[in-house]
Amino acid sequence: METFDVDHVAWLSRLELTQEEKELFGKQLKQILDHAEVIKSVDTSGISPTYHPIPLKNVMREDVILSSLSQEEALSNAPQREGGAFVVPRIM
C-alpha cells in the first residue's frame, strides 16, 4: 500500500500526537489498510456508489422562522465567553 504520512494526516485531523502515538497509529493504520486492500481488487466498473442506504430525494423544509436559542443558552457550554460571543485564541 501507499506510504502513510502520519504527520500530515494528524495535521489534517488537528491532532497533536505524541511520538509514541505516531508510531503506534502508523503501525496499526497500516495493518488496517492492508486488510482493506482487498476492496481494491473488487471489480466495480459500472457500479455507482451508495451514499445513502435509502432512496429519498428532495427533502426540504418551508422557509419559516422558528424560535432560536437565547444568547444565554447558546453560550451555556462555552469554555470561554465575552460580550455574548465565544472567545478563541488568536487565529493567525
Binding site: 476492496i39 466495480t44 455507482s48 456508489p49
Partner: peptide, 15 residues
C-alpha cells in the same frame, strides 16, 4: 477514489 469511493461502490454490491 481508492478507498472511500471504492468502499461506497462495494456497498452497492452488498445492497
Amino acid at each position: 477514489e481508492a478507498y472511500y469511493g471504492q468502499a461506497q461502490k462495494i456497498r452497492t454490491l452488498i445492497v
